[in-house]
């Protein structure tokens, strides 16, 4: 069994894991971080998106063993203490979520997008989120949530 050491949301964790254990199952079942979800079998829906060494990845398409040595941030670790991340604020303010199931992955993907492009156009936001499926919102308010986080909607308020 591979032994892995990862830093998850700022805490170093070490576990022996089965070779076949998916990263998402490690996070959910071993670490109890159930905010990262599984929505499909084909790395299509993005519900399992986390940050691995600072970038958005689909944790259902990686083995836990592949993450050995990595720094991971999940939705549970995105806020700074009680202070929500601007995207978390944006999703709430713009009603960017309904059932909430896609939301963690959507937020984690959008965070990577804004890290790379702090002032995206609407089209860039839509293309940047193409790997995440939402069935509730029609994406309208998700786009606005990202715009909110990017500080693009302040004039309207």
């Amino acid at each position: 069994m591979p032994k892995i050491t990862v830093t998850v949301n700022g805490t170093q964790r070490t576990h022996d894991v089965e070779g076949r254990l998916l990263l998402v199952h490690y996070l959910r079942d071993v670490l109890g971080l159930t905010g990262t979800h599984v929505g499909c079998d084909t790395s299509s829906c993005g519900a399992c998106t986390i940050h691995l060494d600072g970038h958005a990845v689909k944790s259902c398409s990686m083995l836990a063993a592949q993450a050995d040595g990595a720094t991971i941030t999940t939705i549970e670790g995105l806020a700074s203490g009680d202070e929500l991340h601007p995207l978390q604020v944006g999703f709430k303010e713009e009603h960017g979520l309904q059932c909430g199931f896609c939301t963690p992955g959507m937020i984690m993907c959008a965070a990577d997008l804004l890290n790379r492009n702090p002032n995206p156009t609407e089209q860039e936001i839509r293309e940047g989120l193409e790997g995440n499926i939402c069935r509730c919102t029609g994406y309208h308010n998700i786009v606005r949530a990202v715009q909110h986080a990017a500080g693009q909607l302040t004039e309207e308020v």
Partner: peptide
């Protein structure tokens, strides 16, 4: 190719 997440890995 794929999407942001796929391109990252």
């Amino acid at each position: 190719i794929g999407d942001t997440q796929v391109r990252n890995v």
